[in-house]
Amino acid sequence: MAKRPRHPDKHIESAVQYAEEAGWRVEKRSGHCWGRLFCARADSSGCMASVWCTPKNPQNHAKAIMRLVDKCTCDETDDPE
């Protein structure tokens, strides 16, 4: 599988790697959106997160991406309520 280009910002690149380590895949895009991250669940109810090329605050954006990865419960069967 071809290696994807690294995100120019180190914090965001770290967050993208965090997502990949959790089983998410990267779809590289062009324009304001650097790429889209898709969680391991393949169907239409799976999660997606959009990664900016130049967000207002890269560190906050990176943290937000990691929070989303942590929140994904697609592989869990029970409601932890």
Binding site: H32, S45, C47, M48, A49, S50, W52, T54, P55, K56, N57, N60, H61, A64, I65, L68, K71, C72
Partner: peptide, 9 residues
């Protein structure tokens, strides 16, 4: 640009 866009559930 200070938001993170996502699709969940």
């Amino acid at each position: 640009d200070d938001a993170t866009l996502a699709l969940m559930n």
